[in-house]
Nucleic acid binder design. Structure first.
Lengths: 109, 109
DNA sequence: CTCATGTACAACCATTTGGTTGTAGATTAC
DNA sequence: GTAATCTACAACCAAATGGTTGTACATGAG
């Protein structure tokens, strides 16, 4: 099986991007207030370059965007990307719930 | 930051488990009908051992359970695990939506 | 009993991941 | 103009990932 080649790769990137606590934290921060990469880096116990890489992973997964402002690179939440994530997760959940519901029904008979 | 050590590790495992098309497919299959590991393996173009490993990853993420039946190992969806997943994702989404909503409000002023 | 099936698990391998340091190029501050 | 700041990017490294093959062991079928 494994249909929807494109969607699958997008899903790979999305889930993979979310599979790291630092990256989830960056997304959470950036949702409330945009921040430069160095601003973010200051908050974690790792090198600037490491944070830079995390941001790149989030960017590839369409969760955040980067925009140059002066000498800084401003990171923001990417609303369309996040909207897409939300719809995908909702879709997934719906399927799960439907099927789990069906299983429950069958068991009740 | 990075609070909730335990939850974080669970989320790591969850997202990481879902970050692979084969594993997502296995979850989808198992949601509709339980299946032995070899039954699953027959459906993918990879070795039995590879599928065995994928199932182990899903098990660790509490997405499926394995139960020995005769000489077979039956894989099923793990309802409590999936329920937990659902709640975690809901929580995440709620935070996102709240913050995105707030951003939208600010922009409208 | 014997053979085929299903599983477990180890060893191995290439690639990716998550981190590091170091160097170089822009841009701002003084 | 010079120095400090922010970023980009390469090179490197250890560990994890996703796959393989091979061997051994249970269990069911004939």
């Amino acid at each position: 099986m494994v249909v929807h080649e494109l969607k699958e790769i997008e899903l790979d990137r999305l889930f993979q991007a979310l599979a790291d606590a630092t990256r989830r934290d960056i997304v959470a921060r950036v949702l409330t207030s945009e921040s430069s990469v160095s601003g973010l880096a200051a908050r974690y116990d790792m090198s600037f370059a490491a944070v830079q890489k995390h941001v790149a992973v989030l960017e590839r997964a369409l969760l955040v965007t980067k925009e140059k402002r002066g000498r800084e690179q401003i990171v923001r939440a990417h609303p369309e990307g996040l909207g897409r994530v939300q719809r995908l997760l909702d879709e997934y959940e719906k399927i799960w719930l439907q099927r789990l519901g069906r299983i429950a029904e069958i068991l009740e008979q």
